[in-house]
Amino acid sequence: MSKWYQDTEAGHDVFTASRVRLVRNLEHYPFPVRLSEADGRELVEKLETGLKDIGAADGREFERIPVGSMDQEAREALKERRVINGAAVSKEGPESLLLSADERVSITLDGEDHIRLQCICGGAGLNELWSEADRLDDYINERFDYAFHEKYGYLTAYPTNVGTGLRAAVTLHLPMLSVGKQFGKLVNEMSRFGVAVRGLYGEGSENYGALYELSNQKTLGMTEEEILSLVQQMAERLAVSERKIKSLTLRNHRLDMEDEVCKSYGVLKYARRLSVKEAMTYLSQVRMGVTEGLLKLSEPVNLYGLMMEIQPANMKLLASEDEKSDIRQARAAYIRKRLPELA
């Protein structure tokens, strides 16, 4: 079965991916941070047993992955593919993961909270993701009693998740908007509307690939529908600005843009060594070229998926034993192979 990030990206432009995450905890159990190793193990086993048929209920296959006993790099790779969050990479103890074969649904058990349920897909689609998460949430709730407070709603380890426990997020590709001088200011402004924008890949304050995730900051005092529509609206606003700048540039500086995009394609197609930063920068340009019709590829390729696969930990998993000694060389070879010819 293909992964969600290997499906076609046709029709996606600024909206690169959407994600809905729910945090839930069971009654009568301390949160993972206060759970002893033995109790944590018991809880994980209980959850795994109770949810063993979730695949049949959801109509897809699920794999059980013992994250807690995996090495750092394997966990890092899951994080790069957005299956688990940063906290789950470093957490010690009997953490476990139920992952659907297409990696669209992931349920982290005993991470920061007892249950972290996430649904993710390419392009736009927050509402569909929410109905799916809502259904799965009910399925879990049928088997386990949740910690729920009349006033505070669903109780979570961090008070920043309490209430709905819902984080709705849209990944936006903003190659034009993000190079503008005002972008930092714009990002800061967003918090006034109750949403946060953060760079997805990069080191320090540097962003690689112009991918940004916009998500709700507040989880309490708003209904799920209100949160979804806020995130959707704000993401659309940024998308509109990005498209506006793109069409202006296309109208006034088409040749410059074409030149940039084609050079990027050329580097990716012929380079013999690529760092993550280089690969991300050029893939971002190529993605923009494809969505704007400046580049025509002979067959469709999911460029966002490719961006995830060439991240350091995933690249090591994909590289053969001989290639592991020079990962930048492996990256260049992999991209050469995956990037289709021009039509």
Partner: peptide
Amino acid sequence: IKKIQGSDTHKGKRPRFGH
């Protein structure tokens, strides 16, 4: 909590089972 969340009262979904 009110300061960080802008509210201190949950709205929205409630557990449909148990509790």
